[in-house]
Amino acid sequence: MSGDDEGTRLAEQHEGRTVARATMKDVAALSGVSLKTVSRVVNDEPGVSPEVRERVTRAARRLDYSHNVHASNLRRTSGRTGTVGALFQDISNSFSASLLRSLEDVARARQTAVLAASLDEEPEREIALVRGLVARRVDGLVLMPATSRQDYLAPELRAGLPTVFVDRVPRGVDADSVTVDNVDGARQAVRHLLGHGHRRVAALLDLSTIQTAQERLRGYREALQEAGVAADDALELLDLRTPEASQHAVHSLFVAGEGPTAIFAGRNDLAVGAVRALRALGLGGRVAVVGFDDFPLADLLDPPMTVIRQNVAQMGAEVGRLLFSRIAGDTSPPRRVVIEPTLVVRGSGEIRPS
């Protein structure tokens, strides 16, 4: 078989469904250059003409090739590295931190290390970190995506990279996911407030581009509609990223005129910002608050915080079960696990309108 025929065969093989990642040898065959030349290109070394560099790059792209920076150091007969990647939005947040710890417990039982990082809702950061983990040949990936679509992962998924999405379902690709029922959780929170006599319920929510924020807004609106309460755009405070932003937004609501009698905070740190604002305004204990996500010391606030609790331990265990099942060779269709949240009544959500 000629070099051109071999290159065509390789391209056709990798453009279809395959389980093996392309190697530098495959790229060399398709581009018609030596293995050493391919090595120089992927390691960005000098001594290669622009025309040849472009040909190698084009071949690598066609074969979905990604460089393995640790290939020379791997000695495991299984080809595994004993590492998995975990990319969450903010591992300093109690939700992400608890989720990471649950995943670590599962991984440790399998002698696997977890390489974790925060994405901070930055799509470019996500793509760069994923590529870095793939280059290091992690055995699997857990992703809480910041990107609106994850089509860029398609080559790695085709190549067999075990990947589990958490907190948000994948878009543009098909993969395992573990999420909470955000719509139902928000409905529970707002129904609870409405059940205590409230009709002016404000919603504090994250970026409107984020799946979870969209779903919690939907649940908030559905609960109001069920109760025959007209939605008020002025009470929907969106695109809040920090406790400080939440605090400022709540303060502005009351300064501008008649404030709400109750608040649904769509994330734990937004609930913290709301409590700070209410205390500064002298309204602590007079305006009801229900937060989405439990957090440390929530039960020690005055009044203690009523929350919608996600079962983070269960989520982490499900993520780990799916991930290591895939690593072990499970090729069954992708699964979507949805975990029901629960209302934890503590006091702040049971304050009636003044």
Rank of each mutant, 00 (worst) to 15 (best):
A117L: 07
R200E: 14
A97K: 00
R241E: 10
T261V: 12
D151L: 04
R101W: 11
G132V: 07
A234Q: 07
T37S: 13
G291A: 10
V52D: 07
G185H: 02
R21K: 11
E54N: 10
V250T: 03
T147E: 13
V106D: 10
S31F: 05
F254W: 12
R75E: 15
E104N: 04
G316K: 00
A109E: 15
G197T: 04
Y220L: 11
V337A: 04
G197K: 09
R9N: 14
D151I: 04
D233N: 12
T112D: 06
G16A: 15
G32E: 07
V142C: 04
S96R: 02
L193Y: 05
D239L: 10
R40L: 14
D302W: 04
V319L: 12
L322K: 08
V19R: 14
G85A: 11
A107H: 03
G47S: 09
T179H: 06
N68H: 13
R267W: 00
E244F: 00
H70L: 13
V19M: 11
L194N: 09
V287D: 01
G320M: 08
G349N: 09
Q89M: 09
H67Y: 10
T261S: 14
E122W: 03
N68M: 05
S78A: 11
M305D: 03
S348R: 01
T18W: 15
E226C: 06
L205D: 09
A288S: 11
E6Q: 14
A128N: 14
L141W: 02
S94K: 02
L300D: 14
V287G: 01
G7M: 03
N268V: 01
